[in-house]
């Protein structure tokens, strides 16, 4: 397996790092317009943008760590400046994921009932604004890593203890606790099974198994799939923050992220698309069947790349 971005992780990070801030601005603008114009379609588009932003924030964080490993330290680039950026990015990531999850739930609801509950849309909006504020701070701290001339005096002092940062503490806990890593692995495998079961059912339905069941009844299972995925996102991030060094140059890890993006996009499609609902009792169109096969293959690829981490490369 050849690696995707070992050589240009830093470039990829500089390219992708605009997504969480600009993407959130885009999604929030759509939600504000939807509110002013009382337009459900705009609201749906805004929520979809927030979900996609949450998805793309994962590679932003991951490539950031890869870029960190490549930076030569010196009087201009200090470890503390990078760690301060990383901590802000981790908080921003966490809030952005939460916003994306709630946006997804609102979309799921809209598909079933025609509209999302205003409380969910409000929560997604507030969390997105919060994520945007934290991400803006992360972006400022990130820009200052290489531009000492714009550094606010005393914003990040070199006197700070590198071990005091949140990411460092999570890492310390994951590495030195006897049970943390094995238990997180266990939850990761249980979450995998739950997601697999739900996606198997939904995709088999599109392929023609249980055709007599209305698609809406399969759609009702999607939050269970999301529960498994959420458990795996949390435990997966805990592994990554715990031992980032072993993943950033691992080819299967890069492929895993790529297939996760595809699988995530497909999950959004399964949540909001209208076609399969219209074909109850009939054969699904070829495009949908291809999508169902693609979904299963993407998840298998995610599992394969994840399980192969210790063997292609040496991550555990």
């Amino acid at each position: 397996m050849d690696s995707l971005f070992v050589l240009n992780a830093a470039h990829l990070h500089l390219l992708l790092n605009h997504v969480p801030t600009l993407g959130a601005v885009g999604g929030l603008s759509l939600l504000v317009l939807a509110f002013i114009r009382r337009h459900d379609g705009l609201q749906q588009a805004g929520l979809e943008v927030l979900f996609v932003v949450a998805l793309l924030t994962l590679p932003v964080y991951v490539t950031g760590v890869a870029a960190y490993k490549k930076l030569p330290m010196g009087p201009e680039v200090t470890d503390v400046a990078i760690r301060a950026h990383q901590d802000a990015a981790l908080s921003g990531f966490t809030v952005a994921e939460l916003a994306g999850f709630i946006a997804w739930f609102a979309l799921w609801q809209a598909r079933r009932r025609g509209r999302s509950s205003p409380a969910l849309v409000g929560a997604a909006t507030v969390l997105s604004i919060l994520a945007l504020a934290i991400m803006a701070r992360a972006a400022t701290l990130g820009g200052e890593i290489h531009h000492s001339e714009i550094r606010a005096a005393g914003a990040v002092t070199a006197a700070m203890n590198p071990q005091a940062f949140v990411a460092a503490q999570i890492s310390h806990f994951m590495v030195y606790s006897r049970w943390a890593w094995p238990l997180a692995e266990t939850v990761h495998f249980l979450g995998l099974s739950l997601s697999f079961g739900v996606l198997l059912a939904v995709n088999l339905r599109i392929l023609g198994v249980m055709r007599q069941v209305p698609f809406a009844e399969l759609h009702a299972w999607l939050p269970w799939g999301m529960l498994g995925f959420g458990a795996n996102l949390i435990t997966g991030m805990v592994f990554f923050v715990g031992q980032p060094g072993q993943y950033v140059e691992s080819a299967p890890f890069h492929w895993k992220i790529v297939f996760l993006m595809l699988a995530g996009a497909n999950f959004l499609y399964l949540t909001v698309f209208k076609k399969a609902w219209a074909t109850d009792g009939l054969e699904a169109p070829f495009a949908d069947k291809a999508m169902a096969v693609g979904s299963m293959l993407s998840w298998l690829a995610v599992l394969y790349a994840g399980r192969m981490l210790p063997f292609i490369g040496d991550a555990f």
């Binding site: 995998l192 099974s193 739950l194 697999f196 079961g197 059912a201 399980r307 192969m308």
Partner: peptide
């Protein structure tokens, strides 16, 4: 090992469902 994990996902996932 990877096949064993795949089998687990299908077996446990379908059974849980």
């Amino acid at each position: 090992l990877t096949l064993h994990t795949t089998g687990m996902g299908v077996l446990v996932g379908a059974s849980w469902l």
